[in-house]
Every structure is written in structure tokens, then in C-alpha cells.
Design a protein around this nucleic acid. Structure first.
Length: 858
RNA sequence: GCCCGCUUGGCGGAAUUGGUAGACGCAACGGACUUAAAAUCCGUUGUCCGUAAGGGCGUGCCGGUUCGAGUCCGGCAGCGGGCACCA
């Protein structure tokens, strides 16, 4: 680079660190409660400290920062904090693989990532930084756990888990791949363990119902949560059992088909199954088989419907004298409904498959409206549509809804069942047999059972001296940690060695950010002022679990009196992923983008030896496919502003963004273009507004004010790519301006200052620097958002399209809001229009002011 | 299987309540400046016919509503996502 070009080139490094230092020193983004100002709480999903930030983080935090800076300029008291979702398995994996303590590993990663985030120039209140693995955080989680216990929001029960017999550990469902442990490769077993659960199902209806209020959530996320909660209305019905005193309770949502019931089926885990299995070796074996399959989804999908005839017969509740067989079936789930069903093969595909296999009756009881009841038959496809009931006594002829109602009334009248609403949602199991998590503050006593740890004992800290040289839970192996006296009876007892699911920490961190150093989980004044989060931003992958747990947890906290809101996130935005092309060598090895270069003919090849490269489709950046670009490299080369600008350009934020070298280079060119544009014109002194502007200048001012208006609306609506396009257009106009006379210079300055203010949320370092160059002493972070002058936005003349029968024939230039007569006359006088209408009768003319004239002829 | 969403040039994408399709960016091509390169600037770029003027066709496909459809309605296809023995 020559000395001449350094003068006209933007010194990114110097400028960015200068402004970062300035923001840091003034503490301008550290906020306090200010009752005089409206608050705005913007939050991006906090990161897991995995080691280094990736492009997904850059995109996420750039969006949040745009909102934060924009809202701040609008006069809001903006809370924009950052923290670390710091518990979790990767730290333990690192401990096992590298022998480094999970805490050390985590805090080192945090230090690295914090410094990387600082280089992005984010308007964050770092004074509120928190890490969930810090006792200051998790002791409050322990307090709340105890409070939840008091309010019956937590309970313990035996529950099945995926057990890896080699690693001696419990596996999450996603760690079981094809029935094998992801790490050990051992066949996973089902085991029953005592586990802690949060009563999220107490809130099923509320969590479902309140989704409707979340108007600023993506519809997609609401639908996903709705399906996950899975409300269904049905009935519980008792079936008597021949030769026994007890009855079998089944759940159904199609009680209208009860006259078509030809068998009952119960889960292998049903108490009746266990009872019957005693002394029945075949049934015992069958139950074992069901359980063996029961762990993986893939296996479930392929498993055929199988059953075991218990020999028991159930009495049909509405047909006197009719009995049907009772099977144990592998497709009935104990966790849903009552763990027992009746089968109506004609109208349920699963039941039909089962009936065909075991040669059970298939009785159609609902038939299409136009079908003949005597002839209608069900072959291999169950009839599940609405229709007319038949073979069904008192509901014959009724449609589905009426038949359901009639059956419900009949069953309730004889007191053999009642209407019931069921949910797919299960209680949230939070026990993890792991070290790097929040210890559950419970003491297990032989005599007193589970005893809450005394609050004075909190925090119950994790032991530091642990080792990972053998499989299993190191906290459980620790020689002394768990030994403690029972707080109730004083006898020797043991601490709970399970830790909490890490989703618990992320279920309330946003509340903690309001008062991150408070002695209690939350400070009432702070939480009342700041909550709820006005805008939450994060990945769609958290659409269900994290967001549902957080909604539950907030309600649970409300029940315990910690806060007084139900919904934590008023607005939610889910951003798309950052993708990149994938590259492979001829022998199939994945290659990093840095290993690729473009040859002279434009064909990609390997840098090291020029060998050919297979270009794959663009996919989410991932280490395994090596299609990652390190944000640190990009920021070091082009600066944070360029990276931020590229993140916001082109792709709408909710869609995937394709990272390209050409794209980042384009942003870099734009940064330099702005720099030059301002540098060339900054010498123009500020002066008084001229009283007159010529037409061209009026048009420029119009665009300036339209851009303010448009960018403002776009930022409000999360259309960052549209803002970017508008700013490009404005810059194109400004750079084409001549600035010879005073009026021109004044308008150019107005345009440049406006433009600089508008780019500030997106490229804050450059904006501050240019703002200063333009002679402003007050920094942008203390400057209000520009106001569009509506009177200047109105166009003096408009271009109107002239159509004939909807086809464009000409465009005409007319004064804004011109009357219809003038417009029509001008349109018809247009040569192309006149020619096309020659010899034709005009039937009708449609005039939409300032937009279009459509001439309809015969 | 069920539920959602998407489909616009070579590419990413624009297009208020139905009203000039392709803004803006990228890529490509042509040119200027330069000893040369980089950088920068100017121009062209949906497609087909035509030397041109001009015209035809164009928003996944088929049909409908309308003076007018990328936009609304019905059907179909393709792609993506979520859930999945939930009785």
C-alpha cells in the first residue's frame, strides 16, 4: 500500500479500538433503573463458552446490537447484558480428553470469548456479566429449587433413563444413536432411577392458552410449542374385566367409535401387565422385548405392532354381554393417557394393522355420507374421516361431533367414565448424573427420606478436587463430599449427587440480569422495572425446549412470589443460520475454505498442491464439515463493522445467510467508500440553511427524509437487509452530487450526517468516526435518532403507469395528487396509448391516484 | 403419516392495503484512469424475436376471482423444518 492510499483508506484497527475504548471508559452502556425513562430490554440467547465465537454468534449479537443502539437513540433506557451458559457436558468431555478441570476450561473459554465479543463493538452492559457455573448464580438457583419444593413444583419419582453400561452414565435421548451410546458404542439399557421432576404439566393449559398472547413471536414457534404441548380432548372409560373385581381404565379421543371396539390393549409397563406376568414366562419375555426396543425413535419407527393375548376379556361398557380380548401391546405408551386403550380397527390405522395381524374383528361404525352401510367395508386403510355413524345403536345417523357428545353423555350417565383433557407434554426431568452442573440441594436420609438442605448451607458448591479418570459421576465417587448429617434427625446421611439439567440455568438468567449481584435470586424493584424482555433473539433450535422451560420457570417463580409476570419474552426473533459452501478433495476429505483458492480459469483448487476440489452445497457452518470461517480472522482483516454490515446485508435475518468471500469484500468496499465520501466532503463548513433549493436538491432532500423514514420502519420490523439497501441507494445519490454552491453543500452535509446516523446501529465504529470528522462534538452514542420531516418526503411529481387492459403501455409524469380529468387526458394523449386505442371504444378508465391509469376498451 | 413454511434473473434478494416485477448488493462482460497492476470510476446485464425502432413471453405448474395477481382463492409438484405408535 502506498503512502498516498493510506490517506484515503480507513484505518480500521485504530478506529475500532479507539471507539471501543471510549465506550468502555464512559461506561455509556451500563444502565441503572431510571423511572423517568421508558425501558427497553433486548437480549440475545447467551452463549455456551465452547472456546471461540463462531459466525452464528456474530450474526446473533449483531442483530441484538442493532436493536440496542437503535432503541437507545430513540431515547429508551436500554438493558443489553451478556453472560455465559457455563455448565454442561463439553467441559466434562474436555476434562476426560485433556485432563483439564471443567471449571478452568470454562473460565478460560469465557475469557477468550469475552475478548472476541469486545472486538465486535457491542453496546453491552458488561457490569452485569454472569456465568451460571459461578456459585453466586447457582446458589440462587438452589434457593429457588427449595422454594419450588415448598410450593409443590418439584417432586421425585422413579423414572426410566437411558443407561450406558460402559461409561456408567445416563444418556440424553440425543446421545443414543441407533440404540448405542454415542461415546462408548455400548448397547444402551433402560434403567429405573430416582429422579427429580418439575411440574411443568401443571401449567399445560396455561402455557398453551397464553401462546395466543405472544403476538410478537413467530407463528412457527407458537405452532411448534402448541404441538409439543399436544392437547387432546377425549374420555376416560372403565372396562369391566371378566373374572376380576377390578376394572381397566382406557383413554380415547374417539369415543364415538366405541361400538366398533374389538379389543383392549395395555402398555407393557402397565401395572396389570406386571401382575399378569408373574408366573407367565412368555408374557415376561414379551414385556422385556418391548422395553428393549423402547429407547430409540428409529427402532420405534420400524417396530411392527405386536401384542400378547393375556387371555383376559373386557366387558364392553355399552353393549350388554359383549366381551373383547385384552392384549399387552408394544405400541401403547404408559406415559400417555391411562396406559390402556380400546382398539377400533375400522377407524384407526394402528388398530387396524394390529387387528389384521391377530385376526380380530373389524367393524365399521362410521361410514362416508354417501356409502351404503351394508356394503361399506374397511380393507387395509382405516377410515378416519367424518361421516355417518352406523352399527352403533343410539348414535346411528349422527356425525362425528354429535356422536361424541351422545356417547359422552351416555357414559357419564351410567358413571363408567368421564370427559378428560390429555396433554402430550410430560413433566420436566431435571436430574443429571453429572459433575459440571448445579448441585441439587437435597439430603437423602435413610429414615427421613429426601430432606431439603438448610438454606444457611447454600451455596452447596461443587467439590473442586475431582478426577475424571474413570467412567461414571465423579461427584458420586468423591470420598467425602456427599457425607453429611441429616438436618432433620442428625443421623449420617448423603447429599444428592445428581446435578440439575443445564436448561434450568437458562430458564431464569434473563431475570437475574436485572439484578445480577442481588443476594436473593431477583430484586423486586429491578425485575419490575426491566422485565419482561422486550426483544429476545436467538436460534430457532430453541423453539421448543428452552423457550417452553423459560415460560414455565417464570410462572413457577411467579407462584413463589419472585416476580409478577407470566411471559418472560414479549418479542421473539429467531434468526437463520450462517452457511458456507463445502469442499472436499477427490478422496473425500473435507477441506477448509482457507485451503481453497480460485485458479486462473475460475475453477477452485487446493492451495497446497493445486489438486482439484469438489464443491458441495452450502450448509450450516460446522467443524465436522470444515466449512467454517473464523470471525476473529475476519475482524482482524476487515474490522467488526464490515463483518456486522455483511451479516445484515442481503439475506433477511430470519433466513439462512450464505457466507461468501465476495460478500465480505463487498462490505469492505462499502466501508471504504463511505470513508472516502465523508473525507472528501468533511471540509465543508456547517452553515445556515439556505432559503431556496432547486428541484434536484429538493429531490435529494426528499430521498434523505424518505430514507430516515424507511430505515426506521425497517429496523422496527427487523428488516435489516432492506435498511441496508436503502442506505446503499442514499449513498449512491450522495456520491453522485456536485457540491459546488452553498445550497448543494448544505444538502450534501444534511445527507451525509443523516446517513452516518442511520448506519450507526449497524456500523457503530465507522459511524462515530465519520460523525466526528463531520465536525460533531457530541458522540453518536449520545445523539438522538434523526427525525424524518414528513413535509419533505412528499414527491412533487409522480410517475404514473398507463395500462391498457392491464398491460403497461406508457408511463407519464404528473404532479402529485393531480385530478382525474387531467390524468386521463394526459394518458390518452400519450402516443403509444393513442395508437393502441385507435378505432376502439373506451369502456372504462380506472384511475388510482399517483399510481396507475388502466384503460379498458371494447 | 400429520402439522407448518418456502418456491421471483447467473446468485442473495426488493416490490405498503392487489396497482410500472426484478430496487439494492454480488457475479459477469465492456470501457476509462495507469508504464503495469491494485484500488477507483463509467456503462451493459430476466428471456426470446429484431440491425434498429419496437414487440412477444416472463415471479414452480394448472385453473379461478379481478379493469389489473409475485400478492387473493382452489388443485398439483418440488424443497425445507417440526412432530411422530400420543389412542
Amino acid at each position: 500500500m502506498t503512502s498516498e492510499s493510506t490517506a484515503t483508506r480507513y484505518n480500521v484497527k485504530e478506529t475500532e479500538s479507539k471507539w471501543q475504548k471510549r465506550w468502555d471508559e464512559t461506561g455509556c452502556f451500563n444502565v441503572e433503573i431510571d423511572p423517568e425513562k421508558p425501558k427497553y430490554y433486548v437480549l440475545e440467547m447467551f452463549p455456551y463458552p465452547s472456546g471461540r465465537i463462531h459466525m452464528g454468534h456474530v450474526r446473533n449479537y449483531t442483530m441484538g446490537d442493532v436493536v440496542a443502539r437503535y432503541k437507545r437513540a430513540q431515547g429508551f433506557n436500554v438493558l443489553h447484558p451478556m453472560g455465559w451458559d457455563a455448565f454442561g457436558m463439553p467441559a466434562e468431555n474436555a476434562a476426560m480428553e485433556q485432563g483439564v478441570h471443567p471449571g478452568k476450561w470454562t473460565y478460560e473459554n469465557i475469557a477468550t470469548m469475552r475478548s472476541q465479543l469486545c472486538k465486535m463493538g457491542l453496546a453491552l452492559d458488561w457490569s452485569r456479566e454472569l456465568a451460571t457455573c459461578h456459585p453466586g448464580y447457582y446458589q440462587n438457583e438452589q434457593k429457588m429449587f427449595l422454594k419450588f419444593l415448598e410450593h409443590d413444583l418439584v417432586y421425585r419419582r422413579r423414572s426410566w433413563v437411558n443407561w450406558d453400561p460402559v461409561d456408567n452414565t445416563v444418556l440424553a435421548n440425543e446421545q443414543v444413536i441407533d440404540g448405542l451410546g454415542w461415546r462408548s458404542g455400548a448397547a444402551v439399557e433402560r434403567r429405573e432411577l430416582d429422579q427429580w421432576f418439575f411440574r411443568i404439566t401443571d401449567f399445560s393449559e396455561e402455557l398453551l392458552e397464553d401462546l395466543k398472547q405472544l403476538e410478537r413471536w413467530p407463528a412457527k414457534v407458537r405452532v411448534m410449542q402448541e404441538n409439543w404441548i399436544g392437547r387432546s380432548e377425549g374420555m376416560k372409560v372403565w372396562f369391566g374385566l371378566e373374572g376380576r373385581d377390578d376394572r381397566l381404565q382406557v383413554f380415547t379421543t374417539r369415543h364415538d367409535t366405541i361400538f366398533g371396539a374389538t379389543f383392549c390393549a395395555i402398555s407393557a409397563d402397565h401395572p396389570l401387565s406386571s401382575e399378569l406376568a408373574e408366573g407367565d414366562a412368555d408374557l415376561t419375555a414379551f414385556i422385556e422385548e418391548c422395553r428393549a426396543i423402547g429407547t430409540t425413535e428409529a427402532a420405534l419407527e420400524k417396530a411392527e405392532k405386536r401384542g400378547y393375548d393375556t387371555g383376559l376379556r373386557a366387558r364392553h361398557p355399552l353393549i350388554e354381554g359383549k366381551t373383547i380380548p385384552v392384549f399387552v401391546a408394544n405400541f401403547v405408551l404408559m406415559e400417555y393417557g391411562t396406559g390402556a386403550i380400546y382398539g377400533c380397527p375400522a377407524h384407526d390405522q394402528r388398530d387396524l394393522d394390529f387387528a389384521r395381524k391377530y385376526d380380530l374383528d373389524v367393524i365399521p361404525v362410521v361410514i362416508p355420507a354417501d356409502a351404503n352401510p351394508d356394503e361399506f367395508e374397511v380393507a387395509d386403510l382405516a377410515y378416519t374421516d367424518d361421516g355417518v355413524h352406523a352399527n352403533s345403536e343410539f348414535i346411528n345417523g349422527l356425525d362425528l361431533a354429535d356422536a361424541k357428545e351422545a356417547v359422552a353423555v351416555a357414559i357419564e350417565n351410567v358413571d363408567i367414565g368421564q370427559r378428560e383433557i390429555n396433554y402430550r407434554l410430560r413433566d420436566w426431568g431435571v436430574s443429571r448424573q453429572r459433575y459440571w452442573g448445579c448441585p441439587i440441594p437435597i439430603i437423602n436420609c435413610k429414615d427421613c427420606g429426601t430432606v431439603p438442605a438448610p438454606e444457611d448451607d447454600l451455596p452447596i458448591c461443587l467439590p473442586d478436587d475431582i478426577d475424571f479418570d474413570q467412567p461414571g459421576n465423579p461427584i458420586d465417587r468423591h470420598p467425602t463430599w456427599k457425607n453429611v448429617d441429616c438436618p432433620k434427625c442428625g443421623a449420617a446421611a448423603e447429599r444428592e449427587t445428581d446435578t440439575l439439567d443445564t436448561f434450568v440455568e437458562s430458564s431464569w438468567y434473563f431475570s437475574r440480569f436485572c439484578s445480577p449481584r442481588a443476594n436473593e435470586p431477583v430484586d423486586t424493584a429491578a425485575i419490575e422495572y426491566w422485565m419482561p424482555v422486550d426483544q429476545y433473539i436467538g436460534g430457532i433450535e430453541h423453539a421448543i425446549l428452552h423457550l417452553l422451560y423459560a415460560r414455565f420457570f417464570t410462572r413457577a417463580m411467579k407462584k413463589c412470589g419472585y416476580l409478577d409476570i407470566a411471559e418472560p419474552f414479549e418479542g421473539l426473533f429467531t434468526q437463520g443460520m450462517v452457511c458456507h459452501e463445502t469442499y472436499r478433495s477427490d478422496d473425500g476429505e473435507w477441506l477448509q475454505p482457507t485451503q481453497i483458492e480460485s485458479g486462473s480459469n475460475g475453477v477452485l483448487k487446493r492451495v497446497e498442491d493445486g489438486s482439484p476440489v469438489q464443491v458441495g452445497r452450502s450448509e450450516k457452518m460446522s467443524k465436522s464439515k470444515k466449512n467454517v470461517v473464523d470471525p476473529e480472522d475476519i475482524i482482524a482483516t476487515y474490522g467488526a463493522d464490515t463483518a456486522r454490515w455483511f451479516m445484515l446485508s442481503d439475506s433477511p435475518p430470519e433466513r439462512d445467510l450464505k457466507w461468501t468471500d465476495a460478500g465480505i469484500a463487498g462490505s469492505w468496499r462499502f466501508v471504504n467508500k463511505l470513508w472516502r465520501l465523508v473525507a472528501e466532503n468533511a471540509h465543508n463548513e456547517k452553515m445556515a440553511e439556505p432559503s431556496l433549493f432547486n428541484k434536484d436538491l429538493r429531490a435529494v432532500r426528499q430521498q434523505v427524509h424518505q430514507t430516515i423514514n424507511g430505515v426506521t420502519q425497517d429496523l422496527e420490523g427487523f428488516h435489516f437487509n432492506r435498511s441496508v439497501a436503502r442506505i446503499y441507494e442514499l449513498v449512491n445519490t450522495l456520491s453522485n452530487m456536485k457540491s459546488v454552491d452553498a445550497a448543494e453543500q448544505w444538502v450534501l452535509r444534511e445527507g451525509l450526517e443523516t446517513m452516518v446516523q442511520l448506519i450507526n446501529p449497524m456500523m457503530p465504529h465507522l459511524a462515530e468516526e465519520l460523525w466526528q470528522q463531520l465536525g460533531n462534538e457530541t458522540p453518536l452514542f449520545e445523539t438522538r435518532w434523526p427525525q424524518a420531516d414528513k413535509s419533505l418526503m412528499v414527491q412533487e411529481t409522480v410517475t404514473i403507469a398507463v395500462q391498457i387492459k392491464g398491460k403497461l403501455k406508457a408511463t407519464i409524469e404528473l404532479a402529485h395528487d393531480v385530478d382525474q380529468e387531467t390524468a386521463e387526458a394526459t394518458a390518452l394523449a400519450e402516443p403509444a396509448v393513442a395508437a393502441a386505442l385507435e378505432g376502439k371504444t373506451v369502456n372504462r378508465i380506472i384511475y388510482v391516484p399517483n399510481k396507475i391509469i388502466n384503460v379498458v376498451h371494447g
